[in-house]
């Protein structure tokens, strides 16, 4: 991460922290202050000592506000869970001195809040989250591409969505974000029914985004649906792995605290492993 202040997050760039990172051969233009004269005395070669750069975090929390986010369990809608997760993440990150921005991607124009680390920024985020409504269109793919172009500094981009779109298109977005040197984490929110498709009686399924309906006997569609969903999840997960993207799937009937704990723990492990 790269910020204007020193933070608790290890930066991808080499910096001026006290933690030694590695040696590398001197090249013209390097700061001679980092020449290791002892090594020169031993080997007659110039080596530069590099240290880990600790920096603060710039995080963009992207909340999908497409119509499909209205779906959920009987008590929780996906958009509500997304807001909760986003609010929790914002609270944690701002409290530890990181800058947090918010971006809602839906039918309406993207509503960005640029990242700030001030504590007074948190209510702004909360208010904006409260204003977010799940609209009818799905503009996640285009919204992410626009976001990738808008963000000028390397950031952590956390996308909270159901990702109901073509996996290839989604992976193109993620690739775009990664190309812009952003760290990307996905929170994939799925309702239990979307995972089990366990309707007991014939239903008329109404698309929450387009309003199209499909009257069917779910018992007949279930196998094919689960097969298709399974293929989609596998493709998505493999794609994320290829692009080194954190992927967390969350069932709406589960508590999201565990999801966040797992997320943070995985980030911590990743940091340690990369340091090792």
């Amino acid at each position: 991460m790269q910020g204007f202040v020193s933070g608790m997050h290890r930066s991808a760039a080499r910096g001026s922290s006290v933690e030694f990172a590695e040696y590398r051969k001197y090249s013209p233009g390097d700061d001679p202050r980092f020449l290791d004269w002892r090594i020169f005395a031993k080997t007659d070669r110039f080596y530069i000592r590099e240290f880990e750069a600790d920096t603060n975090l710039r995080c963009y929390i992207v909340v999908d506000t497409s119509g499909s986010m209205r779906f959920g369990t009987g008590t929780v809608q996906r958009i509500d869970r997304a807001k909760s997760i986003a609010a929790t993440l914002a609270h944690v990150l701002i409290n530890q001195g990181d800058a947090v921005g918010l971006c809602g991607i839906g039918q309406s124009a993207p509503s960005d809040i640029p990242p700030r680390r001030a504590a007074k920024h948190l209510p702004v985020i909360y208010n904006r989250l409260a204003d977010l409504k799940a609209a009818n269109g799905n503009l996640l793919v285009s919204g992410l591409h626009q976001l990738a172009e808008r963000i000028k500094q390397r950031s952590l981009v956390i996308v909270i969505s159901d990702f109901f779109d073509e996996v290839s298109l989604l992976l193109e977005c993620f690739k775009h974000l990664r190309f812009k040197k952003h760290d990307v984490a996905l929170f994939h929110l799925l309702a239990p029914k979307e995972l089990t498709f366990d309707f007991e009686s014939p239903v008329n399924l109404v698309d929450t985004e387009t309003g199209a309906s499909l009257a069917t006997d779910p018992l007949l569609l279930r196998d094919a649906y689960l097969e298709s969903l399974n293929a989609y999840l596998q493709e998505l997960r493999v794609g994320c792995a290829n692009f080194r993207i954190d992927y967390q799937m969350h069932r709406l009937d589960n508590e999201y605290e565990k999801l966040l704990t797992d997320f943070f723990v995985s980030r911590l492990r990743r940091r340690r492993s990369s340091r090792a």
């Binding site: 779906f71 109901f164 979307e194 009686s201 008329n204 399924l205 069917t216 007949l220 094919a224």
Partner: peptide, 26 residues
């Protein structure tokens, strides 16, 4: 047929893929 309940559904993306064959089978 008349007893079909209207249910909001988000993952229509997958159903539309399999709708053609499945509807015929149904």
């Amino acid at each position: 047929k008349m007893r079909y309940k209207n249910v909001d559904w988000a993952a229509m993306h997958f159903l539309l893929k399999i709708q053609k064959d499945s509807t015929r089978r149904a």
